[in-house]
């Protein structure tokens, strides 16, 4: 029998703990595939967050740091100083981690222009702790700490990270993607691969936001949650490239 598709070698045999229908598994795979195709698995260093992907160190077959909540960009900045410049370094963070408690670390690693890649999973909710409001929860979207839906007058406004970070000098490449259908999964992979390439060329910080889902805490079926991401998520958080110095160079 001919094998036409297989698990990337960079992913371990440990079964993923993610809920059925969650797109973390897809993005893990895309990161692994991109690194394998670029020949950068050897020497790669991951920094995983606190949140649903806290167990990332069990899944990626490379050296991994489990960072304190929100601090992955600071941890990665220091690793960048210590290791060989050719070692590829990526952080993998959720919205509570990156855009709330770790906002200072995110903004400052970006503005310093650290030669690292940040993979940002934005599903607009605190998944692991049970569905509380995130910094990216959309107006009207329900969460356990805004049970009638986020009211900007009461709960404040959500944050658009790509748009904000694109105002900084440091980042080299910023793109927002999603994984709600196959064409978008393919686009997301191309974006992640480009982000790693930017790092390999020592051009500075690359930042990929994935508009993702959380069927469990949205109280939706996996399919409904994908539809929600497509219709609501991606219209509030428009997909596209927000910064690309490789284009500006030309």
């Amino acid at each position: 029998m001919k094998i036409v598709a297989d698990k990337p070698k960079m992913l371990t045999e440990t079964p993923l703990h993610y809920c059925p229908g969650c797109t973390h598994g897809i993005v893990h795979r895309l990161v692994a595939e991109a690194l394998e195709e670029l020949g950068k698995v050897d020497g790669a260093i991951g920094v995983v967050p606190v949140g649903c992907s806290v167990f990332g160190y069990k899944y990626f077959r490379c050296d991994v740091f489990e960072a304190a909540h929100g601090r992955a960009p600071a941890v990665a900045s220091a690793i960048r100083r210590v290791v060989n410049p050719d070692n590829l370094i990526f952080t993998y963070q959720g919205d509570g981690d990156l855009a709330s408690i770790g906002m200072a670390e995110t903004v400052h690693a970006c503005t310093r222009g650290e030669n690292i890649t940040i993979i940002f999973i934005n599903n607009g909710i605190y998944g692991m702790t049970g569905g509380q409001m995130a910094p990216t929860t959309m107006p009207g979207e329900k969460a356990t700490t805004c049970i009638y839906g986020r009211d900007p007058k009461v709960n404040g406004n959500p944050i658009h990270m790509c748009e904000m970070l694109a105002t900084l000098t440091g980042p080299a490449y910023i793109e927002r993607v999603s994984c709600y259908d196959v064409p978008h999964v393919n686009k997301a992979k191309a974006a992640i691969k480009k982000a790693f390439q930017v790092q390999m060329e020592k051009k500075g910080l690359s930042f990929i936001e994935v508009v993702a889902n959380c069927p469990t805490n949205y109280h939706q079926t996996p399919l409904e949650s994908m539809q929600f991401v497509k219709e609501k998520g991606c219209s509030f958080y428009p997909l596209g490239v927000f910064k690309d110095i490789t284009k500006e160079d030309k």
Partner: peptide, 23 residues
């Protein structure tokens, strides 16, 4: 690195020490 806060600085120390450096 002049860190953005003491919180960042100690986590940078975590990164450098974890990567094997004297820091």
């Amino acid at each position: 690195i002049q860190a953005e806060s003491e919180v960042s600085a100690i986590n940078m120390l975590y990164g450098a020490a974890g990567a094997g450096a004297r820091a």
